[in-house]
Design a protein around this nucleic acid. Structure first.
Ligand SMILES: [Mn+2]
Ligand SMILES: [Mn+2]
Ligand SMILES: [Zn+2]
Ligand SMILES: [Zn+2]
Lengths: 146, 146
DNA sequence: TTGCGATTGTTAATCATTCTCAATATAAGG
DNA sequence: CCTTATATTGAGAATGATTAACAATCGCAA
C-alpha cells in the first residue's frame, strides 16, 4: 500500500470516517501526476479514466485532503483555487508567468529563516508561508519585445 | 487637490474616461482609512455616509483603480479578495492570524533582493511579490495554551 | 444647445461552490 | 448471515459573489 494511502486511511479512521472506492480513486489520481490542478480538472481526469464520480464528492473531499496533509492550496488560476499534492514533497514557492501561465517552482530556505525572525519579532507562530511571484517568463518576454 | 486624485484623474483622461462624483466618492473613501477592505465593506461605508452608489459601480471601478496604481489586491478573506490603497505607501507583506484575523504588515527588502536573484536565474522578470504568512498571533496563542 | 460616447442603477444572468435529499454502502454486533 | 445505525454518494436545486445587458442620464466638446 502506498504510504500516502496509509496515512490518509489513518486520518479517516481517527475521525470515524471510511476509506471508500471514490476516495481511493481521487487520492490515486492526485498522486498520479505532479502539477497544480483545480477541482474541475481533477474531475475530468477521473471521468476520462472511466470513473462516474460526482464533482460534489470531490468538493467534499478537498477539506479532508487538506486537513490530512495530502494536498495544499497552490495558487489562484483565474480566480479559482488550484491544489497540489503535498505528501512526500518539501514545501516550495512559485514563479508564475502572467502571460502564458507557466509556473516554476523553487525552494529557498534562506527566505524562510528571515521570515522566522520577522514572525518572532511580532510574536507570531507561523505555520504556512505563501510566496507568490508574478512576472513574465523569458519566452514571453522575447515574444513581446521581438 | 489630493495627489492621488490628481493621478487618478490623469489616468482616466489618458483613457478618455471621466472623473465622476461616484468615482470621487469611492476614491475618497478608499483613502479615508488605512486597512484592507472588500467590495461589500466599501459599499457599506459609502452608503453609511449617505451615498446612493450601486455596488456594481464599485465592482466596475476596481480594475481601473488597480491599473492606475490606486489600490492593489491584498489578501483573501474567506475566499474573496480584499484590497488596500497603494498610493504613497511602500509595498509590504502580511502576517495573518488564522484565529482572530489580525493582519500585521512588514517590509523586507532583503527578501526581495533574494527573490530578484532567483527570478534572474529562471529568466523571469518579476513585477509583483506576494508574500503571505499565516500563523497564530501572540494573543491567540496565549488564549489557546492558557 | 446639440450630439455622442461614457456612466450609472437596476435587474437579470453566470458560474463555481455548497446544500438537500433520497438511495446505497459500510462497519459493528448479534 | 441479518440488523441497524452512520456515513457516503450522485443528482439536482440553491446560494452568493461577480458580470453583463440595457435603458436612462450625464459630461464634454463642437
Ligand atoms: Mn507547486
Ligand atoms: Mn497591507
Ligand atoms: Zn510566459
Ligand atoms: Zn490572533
Amino acid at each position: 500500500m502506498k504510504e500516502w494511502e496509509e496515512q490518509f486511511r489513518a486520518f479517516l479512521r481517527g475521525r470515524g470516517l471510511t476509506f471508500t472506492p471514490e476516495r481511493r480513486a481521487v487520492l490515486e489520481e492526485i498522486f498520479a501526476e505532479h502539477g497544480h490542478f483545480d477541482v474541475e480538472t481533477l474531475h475530468d481526469r477521473l471521468r476520462s479514466r472511466g470513473s462516474r464520480i460526482s464533482i460534489a464528492t470531490i468538493y467534499r473531499l478537498i477539506p479532508l485532503l487538506t486537513e490530512s496533509g495530502m494536498i495544499r492550496p497552490a495558487t489562484l488560476r483565474d480566480g479559482h483555487p488550484t491544489y497540489e499534492h503535498l505528501f512526500g514533497h518539501r514545501p516550495h514557492h512559485h514563479l508564475t508567468c502572467v502571460r502564458c501561465g507557466k509556473v516554476v517552482e523553487f525552494r529557498q530556505e534562506e527566505i524562510e529563516k528571515i521570515l522566522d525572525k520577522i514572525c518572532g519579532r511580532h510574536g507570531f507562530s507561523p505555520f504556512d508561508y505563501r510566496l507568490g511571484v508574478r512576472g513574465v517568463c523569458a519566452a514571453c518576454r522575447k515574444e513581446e519585445t521581438g
